[in-house]
Design a protein around this nucleic acid. Sequence first.
DNA 1: CGAAAATTTGACATGACTCAACTGGAGTGG
DNA 2: CCACTCCAGTTGAGTCATGTCAAATTTTCG
Lengths: 216, 216
Amino acid sequence: MKASLSYQCLRIYFANYHYNPDGMWDLLLQNLAERNILLDTEELAIVQSLFTYRKFKRNQYLLQEGDVARHESFVLRGIARTYEVDEKGKEHVLFFGPEDWWIGDLYSFLSNTPTRYNIDCLEDTEVLQVSKENLDVLYEKVPKLNKYFRILFQNAFITLTHRVGAILSRAAMERYQEFLQKYPHIEQRIANRQIASFLGITPQSLSRLRKQLAKK
Amino acid sequence: MKASLSYQCLRIYFANYHYNPDGMWDLLLQNLAERNILLDTEELAIVQSLFTYRKFKRNQYLLQEGDVARHESFVLRGIARTYEVDEKGKEHVLFFGPEDWWIGDLYSFLSNTPTRYNIDCLEDTEVLQVSKENLDVLYEKVPKLNKYFRILFQNAFITLTHRVGAILSRAAMERYQEFLQKYPHIEQRIANRQIASFLGITPQSLSRLRKQLAKK
DNA sequence: CGAAAATTTGACATGACTCAACTGGAGTGG
DNA sequence: CCACTCCAGTTGAGTCATGTCAAATTTTCG
């Protein structure tokens, strides 16, 4: 199992000529380091043995409604989105997951129950994935990862709290401007209807907001 | 109906009026235990030395906009609310904090910056508070608390994600019914206008929803 | 280049908001 | 014990932001 896994990773390295094998772990390690989590050689080896590298094409799904989320994914390149489909068939974007972010359905992942969300790729996307079993081993063998994810979830909680506040108390225009200011890099890479969906408005409404902004 | 509710509150009030010092830590320890965090005698002593017990009256503030959040609070009894005031002076409830929950403004707490939120008590409320300095010491001396808060924030993140999904994709009526189902114990203790604010609608709209429900 | 998708625009509908008035219960003081 | 006030909740009428549906236009991508 482990052997074939390594082999597969190796094969993917070569298949993906854009990707530098030596640098594959840099982004994750940097992300850890930014939260003051520094791994020694042994810990790094454990991490490397328990994560799996995967590539997804644009429009390919990482997770589909009804399936159980088997992995959490750290995005190395590209951008994914998590969305929900309502009873009228409309999509509602909950998150964008560009490089250096984690994506997945935590609830499904932890509880082993079918997810209500879909996650697909808005660009060709590369990720490092960890399964629940492996993550449990990781927490066991590298306890400092508890601190890492504690900080990660703390920040996610703060961000989401702010987002709920924005939806509750600010008009669509204000939310759009906040979005532009907060995620300028994402805004340029994704379709307006995705942004509209994230903001909780229709593409038509967003178009009108943009028109108003252009006037000024 | 109203009478029995008042009576119940009264009963609870008297039952807890003379707080039992020996039992003060039970709720927190139980909360830890539910997440498989068990403290030995030494660790318990450390925790007890770094938390502070405080009582607040109904309508009293734990935190006011513009101040820096110096503590995170674990609610032992009563119920608090976190709300934001928009530029028109309207209040928007982000969270209710009944017993067994944590409340505070994490962002202000961690970054040492003035908060945009207010936290006040909807009932007489008792809490255990920890300051940032003490929490840092705690993480240092009782590393397993990283795991505790990691799990806590994980769950908070899941709950908030669900809430954003609900706001984006479901009508007011549906959100209200979800709220009733999810927090039946809270619903009976707080004013409708607080619930309306939490749901992101006006008290008038909520009143109309309730009328519709009653018809059926 | 050409088909499909995304965006924009217009006309109209609607759910939720605002403002204002009314109801009823809780608390207060004469 | 009643009159009075206060406040949450309810109800009604009119308004407004945003949604819906449909069509025109632009952009994307095979």
